[in-house]
Design a protein around this nucleic acid. Structure first.
Lengths: 245, 245
DNA sequence: TTGTCTTAAATCATCGATTATTTGTCAAGC
DNA sequence: GCTTGACAAATAATCGATGATTTAAGACAA
């Protein structure tokens, strides 16, 4: 096993509980592991938005050679997390107000559409998954003073939103939503280090979940849209504070 | 310059008019050229849907070494044209009825949304681009007996649909639409070798364009949605004929 | 025949070294 | 002082070879 640089890789990530070695998670190759590591490093903000990715340095940081590194970066383009230019190499996708606004808009459109579809064709197992995800989210504390709880919360929060729309039977749509959620989470994890107390987000989540399993399409979609919109507005303020256009 | 295999690469693609050598098209590296070549090979059906991509053979076909080939394939994952599995390599994304149906649905949603946004914020130049694209499309003949005209038509048709929504100022949305259009075109180029005479597609395009520049949102979006839906229905029939589930 | 184990071949993944391109520096000329 | 061009350093891109894994084939026993 390669050694990983402590400064770049968090061992305590939410999904990073050491997997039972008999379970094959399908991440056998260096390139695939790098995809996960780089993705986490970018979303968490460890790799600064807009910064150039120096291949030699990254190679050394991750103790890998060029081939898997380049391949991993190429795959991350699909996630919208890195950009590439011929002979100029890779860079972390920059953040901007307009980018955040687009992400918010698209989340509103895509996720409400996916939610509606899920309510149309989702089965009982899907409903159960939602209730479980909601429960886990409610039981996960978000304490700004302890970073590891923030990471944990991000993970279950992400899982909740994905579970909501996981019944829609549209794999391409789901992958788009996942991408948008990734990009959105980067903004939250980068700019929303402390919890904002003016919202009862937990209630919002419950309303969305309840409306969804009740198959009340308009109610659930409205609540979801509001929820996404509020998050966007909230983040926008924090971007403005840090002077990001 | 590397030699390219005639059997796999079409020199006469619509956008492939030999570029003036002083103009830098940003496709300087082997990897980037491979992306274009492979994309075209897949969309055109030269690389069979679902088939495994043998790296050794591909390497020889394209006269390249492994590194740029792997990198190009990794980038193509974002386009939904290629799938990957650790230690099992790359394969051309398979086609299926459900995949086609999802693509059609998503095109309806995404493109009408993008069209509405474009009508909301698009400028005069955008309007002009639409009229030009429409004109070029109308002037391009689609003769089933001459394959090169089919390719030419595909190119201007694609250009028309992208121009329609190019005014929306949402780059992420545009890239998703591009991806869906790619996937859709693969179905048409693979399964719709002869023109179906029962539709006057040209009129449909004109209606969409006219409604758009008139900023008649509901009319334009309805026409576009119908257009996409009909295309989907049409393709579905052809898939059924060939016994594809 | 069927199933399973072993081994060989094919194929994928990775590495270290080499080549090509870009970027930075500095001096000559205007 | 400013531009231009040559050179050097840094960085990206590619290659050929090696290592790891999967797949295919054959031998053998139930």
């Amino acid at each position: 096993m390669r050694s990983v640089p402590g400064s770049l890789i968090s061992e305590s990530g939410a999904e990073a509980v050491t997997p039972p070695s008999f379970l094959d998670d399908g991440k056998n190759t260096i390139a695939s592991q790098l995809v996960s590591q780089l993705r986490e490093a970018i979303i968490s903000g460890q790799l600064e938005a807009g910064s150039k990715i120096n291949l030699d340095r990254a190679k050394q940081s991750f103790n890998v050679s060029l081939s898997p590194l380049r391949e991993a970066l190429a795959r991350l383009i699909s996630d919208g997390l890195v950009e590439f230019e011929d002979n100029r190499g890779y860079r972390v996708s920059p953040v901007s107000l307009s980018n955040l606004e687009e992400i918010t808009s698209l989340r509103e459109e895509f996720e409400t559409y996916a939610l509606r579809e899920s309510m149309r064709v989702g089965d009982v197992e899907w409903e159960g998954n939602i209730m479980r995800a909601l429960h886990r989210l409610n039981r996960t504390e978000r304490d700004a003073s302890r970073p590891e709880t923030l990471e944990q919360w991000e993970a279950v929060h992400r899982e909740f939103h994905l579970t909501l729309i996981s019944g829609c039977r549209k794999p391409l749509l789901l992958s788009f939503c996942k991408t948008m959620l990734n990009l959105n989470d980067r903004y939250r994890r980068t700019f929303l280090t402390r919890t904002s107390g003016d919202r009862n987000v937990s209630v919002e989540h419950s309303e969305i979940a309840q409306g969804t399993v009740a198959r009340d399409m308009d109610y659930a979609c409205d609540r979801l849209r509001e929820h996404i919109h509020r998050t966007g507005t909230n983040l926008r303020k924090h971007l403005a504070e840090k002077g990001i256009a």
